[in-house]
Amino acid sequence: MSTCATVSRQLHEPMSATAPTATTWLLLEQPGPWGARALTSSHLDPDLGRSLERAAEGTGVRVALIRRPGRHADCRTPSVRHVYAAHTVPGDAWLHSAMTVDPARLLGLDFAALGRGDHHSFDAALGGRPHTGDPLALVCTNGKRDRCCALLGRPLAATLAASGVRGAWEVTHLGGHRFSPTLLILPYGYAYGRAEAHAVKDALHGVREGRVVLEGCRGRTAWERPGQAAELAVRTASGEHRADALSVVRTESLDTDGDAPRWEVTVAHADGRRWHVTVVRGVAEPPHPESCGAAVLGGPTRMDVTAVRELTVARSVPAR
């Protein structure tokens, strides 16, 4: 039986606008095995995992577990853990890091403030500070969630680590199993699919220069799916690769009269230019599973860009 990743690749399914959504990522180191819902099915205290899920709900913060690439036997709990927080909104993207001996201290964070991009509670509660090391390359490897993540993600994570990528971590869940191996690069928050080691290294090199590599890009997690599609379409049309040059400033749902849902998304450039992008939700054809454990029920959905229009910006005329 073919895996979901094999089927998706054979169908050349587009990956644009399939990134997970989060304005801020909160990452806690947790070695050892992970279950399908890792926050409550790992060596992390399940009560703490449930409390973190509740605290993050509706704030724009997404909590995930990370571990170093390698074998993951049923090993002891670490005495000191890495913790990262990353805000992904353009113009205010940042990555802070900390170490903690007590993961329950994460409950002292102001999750609403973190979601808005305020790192002060992270720094105060955990002794966090700006991360000065390499960008993070988080590869989804949770085989209990989908076998493709283990079969394809773990070798990629191991290859990155063996080749000297110091920011390489395994992460619990990024969605889009059928695009395995999938990864997230922080601080900018661009997700990638069907990734190969050389492409990941190119993307990391781009981050160091403040650039986005579009090959294999699924979108920026700061935006909902219509915004992800619109931003990538404007990048393709304009040739803009600077990470913080573009922002999604408005997403308006259009009257569909029973047709497929549509949105008009406004994308703004830091230099004042603007674009209106029309995005339509469609269904991939032929229908195929979103993951290895899912039944085919007319999906998966996709975001199709049908128009990209650069707006004429009125220029003020100096008074004489």
Score class of each variant (00 low, 15 high):
Ala268Thr: 05
Val171Ala: 10
Pro286Thr: 04
Gly70Pro: 02
Ala64Val: 01
Gln10Asn: 12
Ala113Lys: 11
Glu170Phe: 10
Glu231Asp: 12
Val234Ala: 14
Arg62Ser: 05
Asp92Gln: 13
Gly108Arg: 15
Val249Pro: 09
Ala5His: 09
Phe111His: 15
His119Ser: 13
Gly299Glu: 01
Thr182Tyr: 00
His177Ser: 05
Ala168Tyr: 04
Pro187Ser: 08
Ala191Gly: 07
Phe111Ser: 07
Val171Asp: 00
Asp102Val: 02
His96Gly: 04
His241Leu: 08
Gly32Phe: 06
Ala230Leu: 14
Val308Ser: 06
Val63Gly: 13
Ala260Cys: 13
Ala93Ile: 01
Pro181Val: 12
Asp110Tyr: 00
Asp92Met: 01
Ala22Cys: 06
Leu44Thr: 04
Trp94Pro: 05
Gly239His: 11
Ser247Gly: 02
Pro78His: 09
Leu48Phe: 08
Val213Pro: 02
Gly49Phe: 03
Arg166Val: 05
Ala233Gly: 08
Arg116His: 14
Thr24Asn: 12
Asp110Glu: 03
Val139Tyr: 00
Gly176Ser: 05
Leu106Gly: 12
Leu107Thr: 14
Ala73Met: 12
Leu214Ala: 15
Asp255Pro: 13
Leu126Val: 07
Asp304Glu: 14
Ala104Tyr: 14
Pro261Leu: 07
Ala85Thr: 14
Asn142Cys: 06
Val7Asp: 03
Ala222Thr: 07
Thr24Phe: 10
Leu311Tyr: 03
Thr24Leu: 12
Val80Asp: 01
Val213Asn: 08
Asn142Val: 02
Gly272Lys: 00
Pro46Gln: 08
Ser253Ile: 06
Ala124Lys: 09
Thr221Val: 02
Val80Pro: 03
Ile185Gly: 05
Thr88Lys: 00
Pro187Ile: 01
Asp118Arg: 06
Thr266Phe: 06
Ala157Gln: 04
Cys148Met: 06
Arg273Thr: 05
Tyr84Gln: 00
Ala98Cys: 09
Lys144Cys: 09
Gly298Leu: 10
Phe111Thr: 11
Gly117Arg: 03
Ala191Gln: 03
Trp223Leu: 05
Ala137Gln: 04
Ser180Ile: 02
Trp25Asn: 07
